[in-house]
Amino acid sequence: MSIGALLSATDLGMIRGERILFRNVSLAAHAGDAIVLRGANGAGKTTLLRILAGLTRPETGKVDRSAPHHWIAHREGLKPHETPFTHLGLWARAWGTSAGQIDAVLDKMALIRPSGVSARHLSAGQRRRTALGRLLLQERPIWLLDEPLTALDADGRELLLGMISEHRMRGGAIIAAIHGDAGFDSTCEVMI
């Protein structure tokens, strides 16, 4: 655990079936850092993020997190019957934060109009914004984002980039798997 790192991973290795996905990947995220994971499709970016989040058990190496983290992935975690309002309400209660701020979060994510629409009728962008809304529900220093920009329109991109820079200024760290232009200056890039 390098000093002061919010999250540090030492020589992570992963096998898929019999194929070695990646070997001795090490990284450390300090306050204000933004690490971008690059690699072709299927290279293992998502698997690496899942290892950093503690969901997947790596074949070798270990991960140390010294602070709580948020997880935003391709599958947003919205149940078909949930609406943006009930989804954020459920997770606010699950994480023990006050449900009073939900309206403010919905407003910031421009989800006031569809806040009562169930997820099965929401557009991909609205589903993505609902998931990103979770980031504002509770202050968690580490953000693990798996291709967060997908399905977002121009305003959505702007909104997310704003949230990211605010988060970094508050001393948070971001590790994101991103294709193409990240839209923010990353501290370093890790190639898988």
Binding site: A53, L55, W71, A73, R75, E76, P80
Partner: peptide, 15 residues
Amino acid sequence: QADVEDGALDLWLQT
């Protein structure tokens, strides 16, 4: 199975 497909399982396992 639904939780796995929605991605909700990932969130529950991280609470």
